[in-house]
Write a protein that binds this DNA or RNA. Structure first.
Length: 565
RNA sequence: GCGCCUGUAGCUCAAUUGGAUAGAGCGACAGACUACGGAUCUGUAGGUUGUGGGUUCAAAUCCCGCCGGGCGCACCA
């Protein structure tokens, strides 16, 4: 078995090839007049009576050819070679679907492939090592991470895993906004807290960050340094406090994400970019390329040339750069580091920003489509059927730490991944916290734990834990629930790839639910440990490969796969 | 006003990207083990896919209008 592909892909490719050959022959014989080329797409129908594999290609052809689907399908079938293949029968159904019924030989090979590949089953080489930089969360270092950050973290990490499994080289990156006004305000806020803790009666800065965490930082700073910071002269004091506050804040964020099971490859500092003059260099380059002009005492980027609805100020009339410049410089830097494709996951409040950012990199000569922005939509917390009101200024604010504390890592990740990134999400805290069957995360984990339990039981009964594909009688696996389960398991590598291309990790959750459901059905209908040793061995083998797939899928989602619950 | 997201079962959401009779979970109802974990399984009820048109063999999906919800429209970051 070629490491870079999968059994299911080979089956699909084989069917496609046979259809293409049949179409060619039919054309030569004049059975397909007015032929127009069409993609042959093979899918696995949900219903068994629609075959193991199916395609609607005949209808697609028919519409181009002004013919009808059934007669095109008929022409294809007439010339279709089933020689030396797993295909046993082809039906024409409905308006012209081709339904392929296969012998279980392909499933036998697919299961053996799972057994052999184990933890790397699901991985393919389709991405061909293309380098992708995936930037996500990138929260400001001015406060603790919130629930939207938690959603972006779950989506980003899972997407990265899916892309890695699909053969891409992925780098997870967090951009630290440690330069600019906001961190100056942070430093001023910390200084005020510091002085207040030292007994001084100083006002708190307007628009300062009022969170408790800065009071804690101030207290700890006093323990470490006493009041010595006040002795520093002003510019240095401010810089010192800024650096201190940022590094403490980033450290806290890192800690939170670590508890979430998320480790970044790179924490990229905006300040470092500014220190080496990258924004200025970028601005010069944009000017050289002729996309900068002056108006009203400011400098503007001709972003409308690249699809933005208006031109954007890059240098304000007071001589300061706007945030857009370092941001363009940052993305330029990403390209310079050799990445072929950039993905940013941003919050919904930034979607207005996308077109000007894309315009910026297009103005530098980079293909705008190599920057892809995924907007992770808003999160509402629900507790007791009530929306939890959240505002930074006052009232109730739920941090990511509190969320993790309350619901746990597994439930959080699972819930955030359940919905498509583009859809608004209601997070039901009561449900996530519930340790019962109402909580969907347990449904999948339970299937995994149940399999583990079967093997514990098997060991107790002195049964050899699990025999491999060459030692079992595969033909014994023929119950509908067994076939159904095996088809799902075989599909995993294709699922992973398709989900990664669609950038919709929610479908991984969907897939896991389907596998868990198929397993539970199998478990209820088919006794694994029974009198018939041969049959037991075959079913233990199936249980094992199912466990492998569940574990791999859960790992990609960042959810644990417990041996017992 | 303009732009982005969104509207599917009582609730929360899917739907293999234009495919076959729109599916799951929760909730409701009725059932199922003297053996591998009942956090499970099997069934029943529940729908004019917000709405009105259009495109075609085929529309929840694509296009246009209208209605409702969320977010954004800075010489802030």
């Amino acid at each position: 078995m070629d490491e870079s592909t999968s059994v299911i892909n080979q089956v699909k490719t084989d069917i496609k090839k046979r259809i293409a050959e049949a179409i060619d022959k039919a054309r030569q014989k004049g059975d397909l007049p007015g032929y127009v080329e069409a993609d042959i797409k093979i899918h696995m129908p949900a219903k068994p009576e629609q075959g193991d594999f199916a395609t609607g290609v005949a209808m697609a052809l028919a519409s181009e050819m002004k013919s009808d689907g059934r007669s095109v399908a008929g022409a294809i079938v007439r010339y279709l070679s089933l020689e030396d293949s797993w295909i046993q029968r082809v039906d024409i159904a409905g308006p012209g679907f081709l339904n392929f019924f296969l012998s279980t030989g392909w499933l036998q090979e697919a299961m053996a492939d799972i057994w052999k590949k184990g933890p790397v089953f699901g991985s393919t080489g389709y991405g061909a090592g293309k380098k992708i930089l995936l930037e996500f969360v990138s929260a400001n270092p001015t406060g603790p991470l919130n629930v939207v950050n938690a959603r972006a973290a779950a989506i980003g990490d899972c997407l990265a895993s899916l892309l890695e499994a699909s053969g891409y080289q992925v780098s997870r990156e967090f951009y630290i906004n440690d330069a600019g006004n906001q961190v100056d305000v942070l430093a001023d806020s910390l200084e005020a807290r510091y002085r207040q803790q030292l007994g001084q009666d100083v006002p708190f800065p307007e628009n300062g960050y009022r969170g408790e965490y800065l009071i804690d930082f101030a207290k700890e700073l006093i323990e470490e340094k006493g009041d010595s910071i006040l002795e520093l002269p002003d510019p240095e004091r401010h810089e010192w406090l800024k650096q201190y506050a940022v590094s403490r804040m980033v450290g806290k964020q890192k800690q939170t994400l670590l508890e979430y099971g998320l480790e970044y490859d790179t924490w990229f500092s905006e300040k470092s970019l500014r220190d080496e003059g990258a924004p200025e260099a970028t601005l010069r380059l944009l000017a050289e390329r002729g996309f900068i002009y002056e108006k009203d005492g400011a400098q503007w980027l001709k972003s409308t040339k690249f699809g933005d609805d208006k031109d954007r100020v890059v240098v304000k009339s007071d001589g300061e750069m706007t945030y857009l410049v370092p941001d363009i410089a940052y993305h330029k830097n990403k390209f310079e580091r050799g990445f072929d494709h950039l993905i940013d996951i941003l919050g919904p409040d930034h979607h207005g920003y996308v077109s000007r950012l894309k315009a910026g990199i297009a103005a530098l000569g980079y293909p705008p489509e190599s920057l892809e922005v995924i907007i992770a939509q808003t999160v509402r917390l629900i507790r007791g059927n009530q929306v939890v009101k959240m505002s930074k200024r006052g009232g109730e604010f739920v941090s990511m730490d509190e969320l993790l504390e309350e619901a746990g890592k597994d439930a959080c990740r699972f819930f955030f991944l359940m919905r498509a990134p583009s859809s608004h999400l209601d997070f039901d805290l009561d449900l996530a916290r519930l340790q019962s069957n109402e909580n969907p995360v347990y449904y999948v984990q339970y299937a995994h734990a149940r399999i583990a339990s079967i093997f514990r039981q098997a060991r107790q009964e002195g049964v050899v834990p699990a025999l491999g594909p060459n030692e079992i009688d595969f033909s014994l696996l023929r119950e509908p629930s067994e076939i159904q389960l095996m088809k799902l398991l075989a599909a995993f590598p294709e699922e992973v790839y398709e989900i990664s291309q669609a950038r919709e990790p929610n479908r991984l959750i969907n897939y896991m639910m389907n596998v868990a459901s198929a397993f539970h059905s199998f478990y209820t209908q088919c006794r694994v440990l029974g009198e018939d040793k041969e049959l037991s061995a075959a079913r233990l083998y199936l249980a094992r490969v199912c466990q492998i797939v569940l574990a791999n899928a859960l790992r990609m989602a960042g959810v644990s796969a417990p041996e017992a619950m």
